[in-house]
Design a protein around this nucleic acid. Structure first.
Lengths: 122, 122
DNA sequence: CCTATACTGAATCATATGGTTCAGTATATT
DNA sequence: AATATACTGAACCATATGATTCAGTATAGG
């Protein structure tokens, strides 16, 4: 029932999110559209550097840009991380299931303990 | 009210998730603990290669390992991506807010249109 | 027309990543 | 004791990443 998500897409978006500047840009664009110059200023880096970050975000579909005159305006893209959220959610469920299983083991051990005294720690 | 999350931590875990093999390892470990050899076999790569992936996951806190005798057993770690899920969720809310705002603008434009005909795009 | 602004692309650089091989060490198995 | 197994670490390689500088091009404003 879990939808299949192309690996390359997740690769690209998680990679895009793995940089603090790019996450910052996304948050910024969540508040208002911005030009490359504005973003470069806000994050204290060269235009060229910011342009590259924006390109990475654009590749991942998280940002779209449009050039009007000499200014390129960046805004949030069509994708809003639903697949990434879904992947993480699925993982969290798996993790929880494992965790519950562990809980059972712990309970079982405690049960035994009551009979024999303290168990070896690890 | 939004909890502050250390950037380096998010960097590390999103980077860890940006590789299809590592995501596979996490899913695998969600089903059962496994040794390096087992994982290397499942993902068709050398022991050394898999060891590196496991190390990356371990660094990110997503996996823990324990060596008993000559086999190192890997299992899911203490972290279960709650911060990553939270970050993405926050972003999604921002995105939704922007989207709604856009909707309003569109509505507003339509309103004006009824009086004056087409507006200039920007 | 002239100049400032906004971006773009190529080149460069240091470091990181994903993978390998090869040569070990430590532990099981026979 | 001898051999097989499981991992580990170093070295290497190709490519990617994050950042810069420098030299453009295109557009806006005076």
């Amino acid at each position: 029932m879990v939808q299949y998500i192309p690996a390359a897409r997740l690769d690209a978006s998680f990679a895009a999110l793995s940089d603090v500047t790019r996450r910052g840009v996304l948050e910024q664009l969540g508040r208002a559209d911005a030009s490359i110059t504005e973003l470069a200023g806000k994050f204290r880096m060269t235009l060229t550097g910011m342009k590259k970050h924006v390109s990475v975000l654009e590749q991942a579909g998280l940002v779209t840009t449009e050039k009007v005159g000499r200014v390129r305006t960046c805004r949030l893209g069509a994708r809003h991380l639903e697949e990434e959220a879904a992947w993480i959610e699925r993982y969290r469920e798996l993790w929880a299931a494992r965790f519950d299983a562990l809980d059972e083991v712990v309970l079982e051990l405690k049960e035994k303990e009551r009979g024999h005294g303290r168990q070896k720690k690890k």
